[in-house]
């Protein structure tokens, strides 16, 4: 199998993987393709750009999740829906099932050091996902709160101006 064929297979597989998670978690039909597209892009990003073996599991997963969350916030504002709709298929595709199973088999074979290392990998991926979502959430919440305050202040100023004008 040559490189281009493999690349095409990986891209299609990443999309189908996220589509599958979308179906299991009952994503609304209107957004399922878009949500899967976001997840697939993040998956491709970790596979070709922020590779876990270069960047480490924590940083690689966190950057990919930040990408998913950023796109989710943008799309949720465009389509007026919850960010969760676009986040779930993407993050579920990063579930560290492989590392969990390897940790189990390592503990069965009395290789507790290898088992602990794999458990560390599971924890790094889980915390990376959560932190990636939190950082982008924090930025968007901060921007939204500032906007809300600005609008409230503007409305207050307009009310005061009206009162003065009426007097």
């Amino acid at each position: 199998m040559n490189g281009t064929t493999l690349l095409i297979i990986q891209i299609v597989a990443a999309f189908l993987l996220c589509l599958g998670y979308g179906m299991i978690n009952n994503i609304p039909k209107r957004y399922i393709m878009l949500a899967s597209g976001v997840g697939a892009c993040a998956r491709i990003l970790t596979y070709f750009v922020v590779k876990p073996d270069v960047w480490g599991f924590f940083l690689s997963t966190m950057l990919a999740t930040m990408f998913i969350t950023l796109m989710s916030h943008i799309f949720s504002r465009v389509f007026k829906t919850a960010t969760t709709v676009f986040i779930v298929p993407g993050i579920m595709s990063f579930a560290p099932g492989g590392a969990t199973y390897e940790a189990i088999t390592a503990f069965i074979n009395s290789e507790s050091e290898a088992g602990m290392a794999k458990l560390g990998e599971v924890a790094a991926v889980a915390v990376g996902i959560a932190l990636g979502i939190f950082i982008i959430d924090l930025i968007f919440t901060g921007v939204a709160n500032r906007r809300k305050k600005r609008l409230a202040k503007r409305a207050q100023n307009a009310a005061v101006a009206d009162e003065v004008f009426e007097d």
Partner: peptide, 26 residues
């Protein structure tokens, strides 16, 4: 067998619960 078993574990991983837990804590 390792790949087959690891793959089947993935959909059971409580990803959404962990994310919600960390979000709540943070």
């Amino acid at each position: 067998l390792t790949i087959v078993a690891a793959t089947c574990i993935c959909p059971m991983f409580p990803g959404v619960t962990i994310v919600n837990a960390v979000r709540d804590i943070l």
